[in-house]
Amino acid sequence: MSRARGTGESLKNFPFFGVISIIVFAFLYVPLVFVVGYSFNANRVVTVWKGFTFDWYAEVLTNNDIQRALMNSLRVAVVATMMSVLLATGLAVGLIRMVRAGRTFAWSLIMAPLIIPEIVFAIGTLALFVQIRVPLGVEAITLAHVAFCIPFALLPIRARLRSIDLSIYEAAADLGANEWPIFRRITLPLLMPGIVAGALLAFIISLDDFLVSYFLAGPGGTTLPVYIFSMIRNAITPGVNAVSTLLLLISLLIVTGSYLITRRRRY
């Protein structure tokens, strides 16, 4: 309708439209520019630009503590991703068969962690682990990450599962396939884009988690975000910027990689 188009037009002509956009983008990206830019600053005083250098990267990459923290982060993220995706896939496929009322309730239960304050989850997990004597450290962090990654992994898998025409499963059964061949040859390949997206989401969420990891780290369980936090407690050094930039780079690489992979397989 012309009225609807008119509204769109007037919105475009809204005088502050451009300004607001710039403010929003600045809000989102200036901090990042800051971190990345100053990670190349050849001055020990972070906020004064002196010249370009890779020194901080060299220093950070040869720092044993940072290396250990990065390895911890990757170990946690890889295991948590695999476990949560496995569980989320099973849950999604299993729940689709549940009766309607039970299914809605089950979904709300599974999705609730998305809105539960993370600090509550962190304290609860810590209290539980201490109670049942799970030693704090990388394994404890991994367990907790598996738990809170499940809803994130589940979101895209569930969306994908819902988009599959039910008659496709019926056709497979009609052609002589029972449960396992249907899952292996039909359900799993069709779910793959959702599984990849879910894994990606879980990996990123796990990789940059601070709060839960901080509570459960214990001695030797320091992950990269926890280590970065401990660095700035003393002072914001250019090294912090360099580590943060590396973390940002890892995330970007993963997102880009998975985007390229999923783009190729489109039906």
């Binding site: 008659s167 497979a172 039909i186």
Partner: peptide, 9 residues
């Protein structure tokens, strides 16, 4: 099937 239900992958 009415919708053909071909396997898209």
């Amino acid at each position: 099937f009415q919708s053909y239900a071909l396997f898209p992958h």
